[in-house]
Design a protein around this nucleic acid. Structure first.
Lengths: 223, 223
DNA sequence: GCAAAAGTGTTACGAGTACACCCATGT
DNA sequence: ACATGGGTGTACTCGTAACACTTTTGC
Protein backbone atom coordinates (compact mmCIF):
# COMPACT_ATOMS: atom_id res chain seq x y z
CA UNK A 1 0.00 0.00 0.00
CA UNK A 2 1.70 3.15 -1.13
CA UNK A 3 1.23 5.89 1.45
CA UNK A 4 2.98 9.22 1.44
CA UNK A 5 3.81 10.59 4.89
CA UNK A 6 4.23 14.28 5.54
CA UNK A 7 4.56 16.62 8.49
CA UNK A 8 2.51 19.82 8.70
CA UNK A 9 3.33 22.62 11.09
CA UNK A 10 1.04 24.87 13.07
CA UNK A 11 3.47 27.62 14.06
CA UNK A 12 2.04 30.17 16.45
CA UNK A 13 3.54 33.48 17.44
CA UNK A 14 2.25 36.75 18.84
CA UNK A 15 2.40 39.90 16.71
CA UNK A 16 0.57 43.17 17.35
CA UNK A 17 -1.31 41.67 20.28
CA UNK A 18 -2.77 38.94 18.09
CA UNK A 19 -2.18 35.23 17.94
CA UNK A 20 -0.75 34.58 14.48
CA UNK A 21 -0.09 31.43 12.53
CA UNK A 22 2.35 30.88 9.68
CA UNK A 23 0.90 29.94 6.28
CA UNK A 24 2.33 29.71 2.77
CA UNK A 25 0.47 30.51 -0.41
CA UNK A 26 0.18 27.58 -2.78
CA UNK A 27 1.59 28.25 -6.22
CA UNK A 28 0.40 25.02 -7.83
CA UNK A 29 -2.81 22.99 -7.92
CA UNK A 30 -4.58 21.63 -6.06
CA UNK A 31 -5.83 24.56 -3.99
CA UNK A 32 -3.69 26.96 -6.02
CA UNK A 33 -3.76 30.43 -4.47
CA UNK A 34 -5.04 29.18 -1.12
CA UNK A 35 -3.03 29.30 2.07
CA UNK A 36 -1.57 26.13 3.51
CA UNK A 37 0.28 25.19 6.68
CA UNK A 38 3.98 24.77 6.02
CA UNK A 39 5.05 21.16 5.72
CA UNK A 40 6.67 18.54 3.59
CA UNK A 41 7.50 14.93 3.05
CA UNK A 42 9.26 12.87 5.66
CA UNK A 43 12.62 11.53 4.51
CA UNK A 44 13.18 7.80 4.17
CA UNK A 45 15.58 7.67 7.07
CA UNK A 46 14.19 10.59 8.99
CA UNK A 47 12.34 10.57 12.30
CA UNK A 48 9.01 12.38 12.36
CA UNK A 49 10.15 14.96 14.89
CA UNK A 50 13.32 15.59 12.90
CA UNK A 51 11.26 16.20 9.79
CA UNK A 52 9.18 18.72 11.70
CA UNK A 53 12.31 20.44 13.00
CA UNK A 54 13.75 20.60 9.51
CA UNK A 55 10.60 22.19 8.13
CA UNK A 56 10.54 24.67 10.98
CA UNK A 57 14.08 25.77 10.23
CA UNK A 58 13.37 25.98 6.51
CA UNK A 59 10.28 28.09 6.97
CA UNK A 60 11.21 30.33 9.85
CA UNK A 61 14.97 30.16 10.27
CA UNK A 62 14.32 29.33 13.91
CA UNK A 63 17.11 27.25 15.32
CA UNK A 64 16.29 24.00 16.99
CA UNK A 65 16.30 25.03 20.63
CA UNK A 66 14.56 28.39 20.38
CA UNK A 67 11.03 27.17 19.77
CA UNK A 68 8.82 24.61 21.39
CA UNK A 69 7.72 21.78 19.12
CA UNK A 70 5.32 18.95 19.93
CA UNK A 71 3.22 16.44 18.07
CA UNK A 72 -0.40 17.50 17.65
CA UNK A 73 -2.31 14.77 15.82
CA UNK A 74 -2.34 12.77 12.60
CA UNK A 75 -4.69 13.30 9.69
CA UNK A 76 -5.15 10.61 7.08
CA UNK A 77 -8.50 10.72 5.35
CA UNK A 78 -8.26 8.93 2.00
CA UNK A 79 -9.46 12.02 0.11
CA UNK A 80 -7.68 14.76 1.99
CA UNK A 81 -5.25 15.18 -0.89
CA UNK A 82 -6.81 14.54 -4.31
CA UNK A 83 -3.51 13.43 -5.83
CA UNK A 84 -2.48 10.54 -3.64
CA UNK A 85 -2.98 8.99 -0.22
CA UNK A 86 -1.20 11.24 2.23
CA UNK A 87 -0.99 10.70 5.97
CA UNK A 88 0.10 13.88 7.65
CA UNK A 89 1.51 14.12 11.14
CA UNK A 90 0.81 17.62 12.41
CA UNK A 91 3.17 19.36 14.84
CA UNK A 92 2.51 22.38 16.98
CA UNK A 93 5.19 25.06 17.42
CA UNK A 94 5.32 28.15 19.61
CA UNK A 95 7.80 30.88 18.75
CA UNK A 96 8.71 34.34 19.98
CA UNK A 97 7.85 37.21 17.63
CA UNK A 98 9.70 36.93 14.33
CA UNK A 99 10.29 39.31 11.41
CA UNK A 100 7.38 39.49 8.97
CA UNK A 101 8.90 38.02 5.84
CA UNK A 102 9.51 34.77 7.69
CA UNK A 103 11.42 34.17 4.48
CA UNK A 104 13.07 30.78 4.36
CA UNK A 105 14.98 29.14 1.60
CA UNK A 106 11.64 28.55 -0.06
CA UNK A 107 10.64 30.99 -2.78
CA UNK A 108 7.03 30.58 -1.64
CA UNK A 109 5.07 33.46 -0.21
CA UNK A 110 4.97 32.83 3.53
CA UNK A 111 3.05 35.09 5.86
CA UNK A 112 1.77 35.47 9.41
CA UNK A 113 -2.02 35.48 9.65
CA UNK A 114 -4.14 36.26 12.69
CA UNK A 115 -5.35 32.80 13.62
CA UNK A 116 -8.88 33.95 14.38
CA UNK A 117 -9.34 35.52 10.98
CA UNK A 118 -7.99 32.52 9.12
CA UNK A 119 -10.29 30.23 11.07
CA UNK A 120 -13.32 32.43 10.56
CA UNK A 121 -12.87 32.11 6.82
CA UNK A 122 -11.64 28.57 6.44
CA UNK A 123 -12.21 28.41 2.72
CA UNK A 124 -8.93 30.30 2.35
CA UNK A 125 -7.08 27.27 3.66
CA UNK A 126 -6.08 24.30 1.53
CA UNK A 127 -6.77 20.62 2.26
CA UNK A 128 -8.02 19.94 5.80
CA UNK A 129 -5.72 22.56 7.23
CA UNK A 130 -8.65 24.42 8.75
CA UNK A 131 -9.34 21.44 10.99
CA UNK A 132 -5.67 21.08 11.86
CA UNK A 133 -5.42 24.74 12.77
CA UNK A 134 -8.52 24.49 14.93
CA UNK A 135 -7.13 21.49 16.80
CA UNK A 136 -3.82 23.30 17.24
CA UNK A 137 -5.48 26.38 18.64
CA UNK A 138 -7.51 24.38 21.11
CA UNK A 139 -4.42 22.50 22.25
CA UNK A 140 -2.46 25.71 22.65
CA UNK A 141 -5.19 27.26 24.79
CA UNK A 142 -5.42 24.21 27.00
CA UNK A 143 -1.67 23.85 27.43
CA UNK A 144 -1.18 27.36 28.74
CA UNK A 145 -3.15 26.42 31.82
CA UNK A 146 -1.04 23.65 33.18
CA UNK A 147 2.29 23.93 31.39
CA UNK A 148 4.91 26.67 31.34
CA UNK A 149 4.58 26.86 27.57
CA UNK A 150 3.56 30.49 27.44
CA UNK A 151 7.22 31.35 27.93
CA UNK A 152 7.93 29.91 24.49
CA UNK A 153 6.14 32.94 23.04
CA UNK A 154 8.43 35.35 24.89
CA UNK A 155 11.97 36.50 24.26
CA UNK A 156 14.61 34.86 26.39
CA UNK A 157 14.26 37.58 29.02
CA UNK A 158 10.77 38.84 29.71
CA UNK A 159 8.65 40.61 32.29
CA UNK A 160 5.57 39.30 34.04
CA UNK A 161 3.45 41.77 32.07
CA UNK A 162 4.81 40.44 28.78
CA UNK A 163 3.98 36.92 29.88
CA UNK A 164 0.52 38.03 30.88
CA UNK A 165 -0.04 39.47 27.44
CA UNK A 166 0.61 36.02 25.99
CA UNK A 167 -2.17 34.54 28.08
CA UNK A 168 -4.53 37.39 27.30
CA UNK A 169 -3.98 37.15 23.58
CA UNK A 170 -4.24 33.38 23.33
CA UNK A 171 -7.26 33.15 25.59
CA UNK A 172 -8.87 36.36 24.38
CA UNK A 173 -9.55 37.41 27.96
CA UNK A 174 -8.29 40.09 30.35
CA UNK A 175 -6.51 38.88 33.45
CA UNK A 176 -6.02 40.82 36.65
CA UNK A 177 -2.37 41.99 36.52
CA UNK A 178 -1.97 41.81 40.28
CA UNK A 179 -3.32 38.34 40.84
CA UNK A 180 -1.54 37.09 37.72
CA UNK A 181 1.74 38.40 39.07
CA UNK A 182 1.33 36.52 42.30
CA UNK A 183 0.30 33.32 40.62
CA UNK A 184 3.15 33.05 38.15
CA UNK A 185 5.87 34.21 40.52
CA UNK A 186 4.53 31.77 43.08
CA UNK A 187 4.35 28.75 40.78
CA UNK A 188 7.35 26.60 41.61
CA UNK A 189 10.01 26.51 38.88
CA UNK A 190 7.99 28.53 36.38
CA UNK A 191 10.06 31.74 36.40
CA UNK A 192 13.58 32.51 37.57
CA UNK A 193 14.43 36.17 38.19
CA UNK A 194 17.66 37.22 36.55
CA UNK A 195 18.13 40.17 38.88
CA UNK A 196 17.93 42.88 36.25
CA UNK A 197 15.09 45.24 35.45
CA UNK A 198 13.69 46.96 32.41
CA UNK A 199 11.57 50.02 31.78
CA UNK A 200 10.79 49.12 28.18
CA UNK A 201 7.10 48.97 28.92
CA UNK A 202 7.04 52.33 30.72
CA UNK A 203 6.17 53.00 34.33
CA UNK A 204 7.96 51.45 37.24
CA UNK A 205 10.86 49.16 36.28
CA UNK A 206 9.89 45.51 36.05
CA UNK A 207 11.91 42.47 37.04
CA UNK A 208 13.21 40.39 34.16
CA UNK A 209 12.77 36.61 34.21
CA UNK A 210 13.84 33.55 32.30
CA UNK A 211 11.81 30.37 32.07
CA UNK A 212 12.45 27.91 34.86
CA UNK A 213 12.84 24.15 34.81
CA UNK A 214 9.24 23.24 35.65
CA UNK A 215 7.37 21.18 33.08
CA UNK A 216 4.05 21.26 34.88
CA UNK A 217 2.37 24.20 36.56
CA UNK A 218 1.07 23.65 40.03
CA UNK A 219 -1.32 25.20 40.70
CA UNK A 220 -2.39 25.87 37.11
CA UNK A 221 -3.07 29.32 35.72
CA UNK A 222 -6.83 29.44 35.25
CA UNK A 223 -8.71 31.10 32.42
CA UNK B 1 8.96 7.03 -0.58
CA UNK B 2 7.33 3.77 0.40
CA UNK B 3 5.83 4.02 3.87
CA UNK B 4 3.55 1.46 5.46
CA UNK B 5 0.88 2.91 7.71
CA UNK B 6 -0.64 0.91 10.56
CA UNK B 7 -2.88 1.48 13.53
CA UNK B 8 -2.02 0.08 16.96
CA UNK B 9 -4.50 -0.18 19.79
CA UNK B 10 -4.06 0.37 23.49
CA UNK B 11 -7.23 -1.25 24.82
CA UNK B 12 -7.76 -0.79 28.53
CA UNK B 13 -10.27 -2.56 30.72
CA UNK B 14 -10.59 -3.33 34.40
CA UNK B 15 -10.41 -6.92 35.62
CA UNK B 16 -9.92 -8.10 39.20
CA UNK B 17 -9.41 -4.56 40.43
CA UNK B 18 -6.51 -4.08 38.05
CA UNK B 19 -6.07 -1.94 34.98
CA UNK B 20 -5.47 -4.39 32.15
CA UNK B 21 -4.35 -3.96 28.57
CA UNK B 22 -4.91 -6.25 25.63
CA UNK B 23 -1.85 -7.79 23.97
CA UNK B 24 -1.30 -10.53 21.42
CA UNK B 25 1.61 -12.92 21.33
CA UNK B 26 3.67 -12.69 18.19
CA UNK B 27 4.00 -15.98 16.31
CA UNK B 28 6.51 -14.80 13.74
CA UNK B 29 9.75 -12.81 13.76
CA UNK B 30 10.66 -10.15 14.51
CA UNK B 31 10.05 -10.22 18.25
CA UNK B 32 8.66 -13.76 18.01
CA UNK B 33 7.14 -14.83 21.32
CA UNK B 34 6.91 -11.28 22.64
CA UNK B 35 3.64 -9.51 23.32
CA UNK B 36 2.46 -6.77 21.01
CA UNK B 37 -0.41 -4.32 20.98
CA UNK B 38 -3.13 -5.40 18.57
CA UNK B 39 -3.04 -3.56 15.27
CA UNK B 40 -2.76 -3.85 11.54
CA UNK B 41 -2.36 -2.10 8.25
CA UNK B 42 -4.62 0.72 7.15
CA UNK B 43 -6.58 -0.06 4.01
CA UNK B 44 -6.01 1.93 0.86
CA UNK B 45 -9.40 3.58 1.01
CA UNK B 46 -9.85 3.45 4.76
CA UNK B 47 -9.89 6.31 7.22
CA UNK B 48 -7.52 5.98 10.17
CA UNK B 49 -10.32 5.90 12.74
CA UNK B 50 -12.18 3.29 10.71
CA UNK B 51 -9.10 1.11 10.64
CA UNK B 52 -8.84 1.40 14.42
CA UNK B 53 -12.52 0.49 14.80
CA UNK B 54 -12.08 -2.50 12.54
CA UNK B 55 -9.12 -3.77 14.53
CA UNK B 56 -11.03 -3.27 17.77
CA UNK B 57 -13.91 -5.37 16.51
CA UNK B 58 -11.56 -8.06 15.19
CA UNK B 59 -9.66 -8.34 18.45
CA UNK B 60 -12.36 -7.89 21.05
CA UNK B 61 -15.69 -8.35 19.32
CA UNK B 62 -16.73 -5.03 20.80
CA UNK B 63 -19.27 -3.34 18.63
CA UNK B 64 -18.59 0.15 17.46
CA UNK B 65 -20.61 2.16 19.96
CA UNK B 66 -19.82 0.23 23.12
CA UNK B 67 -16.26 1.39 23.63
CA UNK B 68 -14.58 4.74 23.62
CA UNK B 69 -11.88 5.18 20.97
CA UNK B 70 -9.59 8.16 20.43
CA UNK B 71 -6.34 8.91 18.70
CA UNK B 72 -3.33 8.77 20.98
CA UNK B 73 -0.19 9.65 19.02
CA UNK B 74 1.86 8.59 16.02
CA UNK B 75 5.12 6.68 16.13
CA UNK B 76 7.39 6.62 13.09
CA UNK B 77 11.03 6.08 13.95
CA UNK B 78 12.87 4.72 10.92
CA UNK B 79 14.07 1.64 12.83
CA UNK B 80 11.00 0.84 14.89
CA UNK B 81 10.24 -2.11 12.61
CA UNK B 82 13.35 -3.81 11.24
CA UNK B 83 11.57 -5.00 8.12
CA UNK B 84 10.30 -1.80 6.57
CA UNK B 85 9.47 1.79 7.33
CA UNK B 86 6.23 1.73 9.30
CA UNK B 87 4.41 4.75 10.63
CA UNK B 88 1.92 3.68 13.25
CA UNK B 89 -1.01 5.75 14.45
CA UNK B 90 -1.85 4.59 17.97
CA UNK B 91 -5.42 4.69 19.30
CA UNK B 92 -6.60 4.47 22.86
CA UNK B 93 -9.70 2.44 23.74
CA UNK B 94 -11.59 2.01 27.02
CA UNK B 95 -13.90 -0.97 27.42
CA UNK B 96 -16.05 -2.52 30.12
CA UNK B 97 -14.84 -5.84 31.49
CA UNK B 98 -14.76 -8.53 28.79
CA UNK B 99 -14.39 -12.31 28.84
CA UNK B 100 -10.80 -13.51 29.16
CA UNK B 101 -10.24 -15.20 25.85
CA UNK B 102 -10.91 -11.94 24.03
CA UNK B 103 -10.83 -14.33 21.14
CA UNK B 104 -11.38 -12.67 17.81
CA UNK B 105 -11.23 -14.05 14.32
CA UNK B 106 -7.49 -14.06 14.72
CA UNK B 107 -5.94 -17.38 15.66
CA UNK B 108 -3.33 -15.46 17.64
CA UNK B 109 -3.05 -15.77 21.40
CA UNK B 110 -4.66 -12.62 22.80
CA UNK B 111 -4.66 -11.91 26.52
CA UNK B 112 -5.37 -9.27 29.11
CA UNK B 113 -2.29 -8.18 31.05
CA UNK B 114 -2.12 -5.96 34.11
CA UNK B 115 -0.76 -2.76 32.61
CA UNK B 116 1.59 -2.09 35.49
CA UNK B 117 3.25 -5.49 35.21
CA UNK B 118 3.71 -5.24 31.47
CA UNK B 119 5.25 -1.80 31.83
CA UNK B 120 7.53 -2.85 34.66
CA UNK B 121 9.03 -5.50 32.40
CA UNK B 122 8.98 -3.80 29.03
CA UNK B 123 11.30 -6.27 27.38
CA UNK B 124 8.29 -8.53 27.02
CA UNK B 125 6.80 -6.07 24.56
CA UNK B 126 7.66 -5.97 20.87
CA UNK B 127 8.73 -2.93 18.85
CA UNK B 128 8.24 0.39 20.66
CA UNK B 129 5.01 -0.81 22.20
CA UNK B 130 6.30 -0.18 25.70
CA UNK B 131 6.52 3.53 24.92
CA UNK B 132 3.08 3.52 23.33
CA UNK B 133 1.57 1.79 26.34
CA UNK B 134 3.22 4.26 28.67
CA UNK B 135 1.83 7.22 26.73
CA UNK B 136 -1.60 5.61 26.68
CA UNK B 137 -1.59 5.04 30.41
CA UNK B 138 -0.60 8.59 31.12
CA UNK B 139 -3.31 9.90 28.81
CA UNK B 140 -5.92 7.66 30.42
CA UNK B 141 -5.00 8.88 33.89
CA UNK B 142 -5.19 12.50 32.86
CA UNK B 143 -8.48 12.13 31.01
CA UNK B 144 -10.32 10.72 34.00
CA UNK B 145 -9.94 14.04 35.74
CA UNK B 146 -11.73 16.32 33.36
CA UNK B 147 -13.75 14.00 31.11
CA UNK B 148 -16.57 11.56 31.85
CA UNK B 149 -14.49 8.79 30.32
CA UNK B 150 -14.41 6.61 33.40
CA UNK B 151 -17.95 5.53 32.52
CA UNK B 152 -16.56 3.77 29.45
CA UNK B 153 -15.03 1.21 31.84
CA UNK B 154 -18.40 0.47 33.40
CA UNK B 155 -21.35 -1.58 32.25
CA UNK B 156 -24.25 0.36 30.85
CA UNK B 157 -25.84 0.60 34.29
CA UNK B 158 -23.51 1.14 37.19
CA UNK B 159 -23.37 2.41 40.75
CA UNK B 160 -21.32 5.27 42.12
CA UNK B 161 -19.15 2.78 43.97
CA UNK B 162 -18.40 0.90 40.75
CA UNK B 163 -17.43 4.16 39.11
CA UNK B 164 -15.24 5.03 42.05
CA UNK B 165 -13.43 1.74 41.69
CA UNK B 166 -12.49 2.72 38.15
CA UNK B 167 -10.82 5.88 39.42
CA UNK B 168 -9.09 4.06 42.24
CA UNK B 169 -7.70 1.37 39.98
CA UNK B 170 -6.50 3.68 37.22
CA UNK B 171 -4.97 6.19 39.59
CA UNK B 172 -3.76 3.66 42.12
CA UNK B 173 -5.15 5.76 44.96
CA UNK B 174 -7.99 5.49 47.49
CA UNK B 175 -10.73 8.06 47.28
CA UNK B 176 -13.14 9.03 50.01
CA UNK B 177 -16.42 7.29 49.09
CA UNK B 178 -18.55 10.05 50.59
CA UNK B 179 -16.90 13.02 48.96
CA UNK B 180 -16.61 11.12 45.69
CA UNK B 181 -20.32 10.43 45.76
CA UNK B 182 -21.14 14.09 46.14
CA UNK B 183 -18.73 15.18 43.46
CA UNK B 184 -19.87 12.86 40.69
CA UNK B 185 -23.58 13.14 41.39
CA UNK B 186 -23.16 16.91 41.50
CA UNK B 187 -21.18 17.23 38.25
CA UNK B 188 -23.62 18.49 35.64
CA UNK B 189 -24.50 15.93 32.98
CA UNK B 190 -22.06 13.29 34.21
CA UNK B 191 -24.55 10.75 35.59
CA UNK B 192 -28.27 10.24 35.07
CA UNK B 193 -30.12 8.14 37.67
CA UNK B 194 -32.29 5.47 36.10
CA UNK B 195 -34.48 5.16 39.19
CA UNK B 196 -33.64 1.53 40.01
CA UNK B 197 -31.39 0.12 42.67
CA UNK B 198 -29.10 -2.82 43.13
CA UNK B 199 -27.68 -4.71 46.06
CA UNK B 200 -25.09 -6.60 44.00
CA UNK B 201 -22.27 -5.03 46.00
CA UNK B 202 -23.83 -5.85 49.37
CA UNK B 203 -24.99 -3.43 52.01
CA UNK B 204 -27.61 -0.80 51.49
CA UNK B 205 -29.08 -0.73 47.98
CA UNK B 206 -27.33 1.70 45.62
CA UNK B 207 -28.85 3.86 42.92
CA UNK B 208 -28.09 2.79 39.37
CA UNK B 209 -26.88 5.35 36.84
CA UNK B 210 -26.17 5.67 33.13
CA UNK B 211 -23.61 8.04 31.64
CA UNK B 212 -24.94 11.49 30.89
CA UNK B 213 -24.37 13.76 27.93
CA UNK B 214 -21.52 15.84 29.37
CA UNK B 215 -18.22 15.75 27.49
CA UNK B 216 -16.31 17.83 30.01
CA UNK B 217 -16.38 17.57 33.79
CA UNK B 218 -16.80 20.77 35.67
CA UNK B 219 -15.49 20.84 38.30
CA UNK B 220 -12.99 18.05 37.58
CA UNK B 221 -12.53 14.98 39.74
CA UNK B 222 -9.16 15.49 41.39
CA UNK B 223 -6.58 12.83 42.11
C1' DG C 1 -28.34 -7.42 66.65
C1' DC C 2 -24.32 -6.78 63.78
C1' DA C 3 -21.60 -6.02 59.63
C1' DA C 4 -21.34 -3.72 55.37
C1' DA C 5 -22.17 -0.51 52.02
C1' DA C 6 -24.91 3.93 50.66
C1' DG C 7 -25.62 8.37 51.35
C1' DT C 8 -26.01 13.25 54.17
C1' DG C 9 -24.44 17.14 57.28
C1' DT C 10 -20.99 19.91 59.13
C1' DT C 11 -16.74 22.10 59.93
C1' DA C 12 -12.07 23.72 58.73
C1' DC C 13 -8.90 24.97 55.43
C1' DG C 14 -6.84 26.81 51.28
C1' DA C 15 -6.84 28.58 46.75
C1' DG C 16 -8.94 32.18 43.79
C1' DT C 17 -11.04 36.87 43.19
C1' DA C 18 -11.68 41.65 43.76
C1' DC C 19 -9.82 45.64 44.88
C1' DA C 20 -7.52 49.20 47.97
C1' DC C 21 -3.13 50.68 48.30
C1' DC C 22 1.92 51.64 47.81
C1' DC C 23 6.31 51.92 44.71
C1' DA C 24 9.49 53.59 41.07
C1' DT C 25 10.14 55.45 36.93
C1' DG C 26 9.53 59.18 32.67
C1' DT C 27 7.96 63.68 31.38
C1' DA D 1 3.17 66.99 40.02
C1' DC D 2 1.13 63.43 37.57
C1' DA D 3 0.61 59.55 34.48
C1' DT D 4 1.93 54.85 33.88
C1' DG D 5 2.82 50.46 34.76
C1' DG D 6 4.92 47.21 38.78
C1' DG D 7 4.00 45.00 42.82
C1' DT D 8 1.86 43.95 47.90
C1' DG D 9 -1.87 43.42 51.46
C1' DT D 10 -6.27 41.87 52.65
C1' DA D 11 -11.04 40.52 53.00
C1' DC D 12 -14.45 37.60 50.96
C1' DT D 13 -16.00 33.48 48.58
C1' DC D 14 -16.33 29.00 47.18
C1' DG D 15 -14.72 24.33 46.30
C1' DT D 16 -12.46 20.50 48.83
C1' DA D 17 -11.01 17.37 52.53
C1' DA D 18 -11.98 15.20 56.71
C1' DC D 19 -15.01 12.86 59.29
C1' DA D 20 -19.17 12.16 62.38
C1' DC D 21 -23.52 10.39 61.56
C1' DT D 22 -27.84 8.22 59.57
C1' DT D 23 -30.07 4.78 56.30
C1' DT D 24 -30.98 0.24 54.34
C1' DT D 25 -29.93 -4.02 53.19
C1' DG D 26 -28.03 -9.42 54.26
C1' DC D 27 -26.99 -12.78 57.66
Amino acid sequence: MPFAVTVDLVVFTIRDEQLCVLAVRRGVPPYRGRWALPGGFVGEEERLLDAAKRELVEETGLDDASAHLEQLATYGDPRRDPRLRVVSVAYLAFAAALPEPAAGADAADARWHPAARLLADRKRLAFDHGAILEDGLERARAKLEYSPLATAFCAEEFTVAELRQVYEVVWGARLDPRNFHRKVTGADGFLVPIGRQTTRNGGRPAQLYRRGAATLLNPPITR
